[in-house]
């Protein structure tokens, strides 16, 4: 994939993450803050399909944006082919693991 395409994805996911996190924070304000973190309320939130989808999209957007940011920083540290390959594999695997684990949590709690 061309670097410009990767960076387009990076900027778009960054903006979209900002938007979805803003919606998420706004939704927390619907109930008093202390109540919003009570066990029953949290589980109830997960069981709302729209809320679960919102959480899933935050998870995916932040993971893509964050791990690509990490890749960019690591690439600037050293410049050799082996390191570049390692950085690529490491960030891609870490991103998939985080998305996979987070999705699993969302599915278990909402199920």
């Amino acid at each position: 994939m061309r670097e410009s395409t990767v960076m387009k994805i990076h900027y778009v996911t960054g903006l979209a993450a900002l938007l979805t996190v803003a919606v998420h924070v706004m939704m927390r304000v619907i109930t008093p803050f202390s109540m919003s973190l009570e066990y029953e309320n949290v589980v109830a939130n997960y069981q709302n399909i729209l809320y679960s989808l919102l959480l899933e999209s935050i998870l995916i957007l932040v993971s893509i944006h964050g791990f690509n940011g990490l890749r960019v920083m690591l690439l600037e540290l050293r410049q050799d082919a082996k390191w570049e390959k390692f950085v690529m594999l490491f960030t891609l695997t870490a991103m998939l693991v985080v998305i996979g684990y987070g999705t699993r949590t969302i599915i278990i709690v909402s199920g």
Partner: peptide, 9 residues
């Protein structure tokens, strides 16, 4: 210039 170490850095 559209490279991993190119313009985007």
């Amino acid at each position: 210039v559209d490279d991993k170490h190119g313009i985007w850095r």
